[in-house]
Design a protein around this nucleic acid. Structure first.
Length: 268
DNA sequence: ATTGCTTCCTGAGCGC
DNA sequence: TGCGCTCAGGAAGCAA
């Protein structure tokens, strides 16, 4: 399940491989993968890839400074760069370049998509995103103000992309363990000191995961189909024991599996 | 306005 | 061996 570090890893790989390449065509192998929100036949444009950036979990491919291809990998989406076509049963779309290389969009569960927008427009969901966790704009003053109004569990709040952009289930479980906060703690019950710890732990866990090219649980791969390695450093997610040897508990919060240590994470 | 549940989808893992 | 069941999960859409 690609979260911020995994998406950022994909973006870095794309920058190395496809900047400057001219598009030949974009083809859809499964319906409801490509969405054209421009008024042009954008999938047949001959534009050049200018840049690739990230916002939250969204990948933004700048095409000829005229369009953005907005890619969301959701659960199982992958972008795979290839010198030769290697269509699999899960290939949903292919971006063909003039030099005969290509970028394949693979997606087992088919939740992902590629949406084209004019360069001055954007996906409405992106406009609603909260701050980037690794920037200074994600700070204790901001989060404290948001949490004061929230009566839902901190676990649920941190998964809300309009509060903070880019976190998913793995990193929220991990960061709450690191600061000994119980995932069911209500947002408005966190102390100012705890809010500061949330900020610090969020930035730390994401930075560490970035160094290791993300977490490859389920089937995350970078564009060379290589896995990340942060799964080696997980402390609670899908674990039986925390690093101190306590038994991990697994509960559902907001329909999501939540892993935590009932001994280390007591505040509630 | 805010919160929370359901839905989309397919493969893995499990019990029998 | 193989069938059927449950589960995983981001975020849109809808209901309360």
């Amino acid at each position: 399940m690609p979260e911020l570090p995994e998406v950022e890893t994909v973006v870095k790989g794309l920058k190395d491989k496809i900047i400057g390449k001219q598009i030949e065509s974009v083809t859809e192998l499964r319906v409801n993968t490509l969405y054209n929100h421009t008024d042009e036949n954008v999938w047949d444009c001959s534009e050049v890839i200018i840049d690739i950036t990230r916002r939250g979990k969204y990948i933004l491919i700048n095409v000829g400074n005229r369009f953005n291809f907005v890619v969301h990998l959701r659960m199982t989406g992958k972008l795979v760069y290839a010198e030769h076509e290697q269509i699999s049963p899960h290939t949903r779309a292919v971006i063909n370049f003039r030099d005969n290389t290509l970028l394949q969009f693979e997606d087992i569960r088919t939740f992902g998509s590629i949406k084209a927008y004019n360069i001055d427009a954007t996906d409405p969901a992106i406009l609603k995103l909260g701050p980037e966790p690794l920037l200074e704009e994600f700070n204790a003053n901001y989060l404290n103000e948001v949490l004061q109004k929230k009566k839902s569990p901190i676990k649920t709040i941190l998964l809300d992309q309009t509060v903070i952009a880019g976190l998913g289930n793995i990193y929220v479980c991990e960061l709450l363990y690191r600061i000994n906060i119980h995932p069911l703690t209500l947002g408005n019950r966190l102390t100012k000191a705890e809010v500061k710890r949330v900020i610090t732990a969020t930035k730390e866990v994401l930075a560490e995961a970035l160094i290791h090219n993300g977490t490859s649980i389920s089937d995350f791969r970078n564009i060379d189909d290589k896995p990340g390695s942060f799964q080696k450093f997980l402390r609670v997610y899908q674990k039986k024991q925390c690093p101190k040897g306590h038994a991990i508990e697994r509960i559902k919060i907001g329909g999501r599996s939540t892993f935590f240590c009932p001994i280390c994470q007591k505040s509630k």
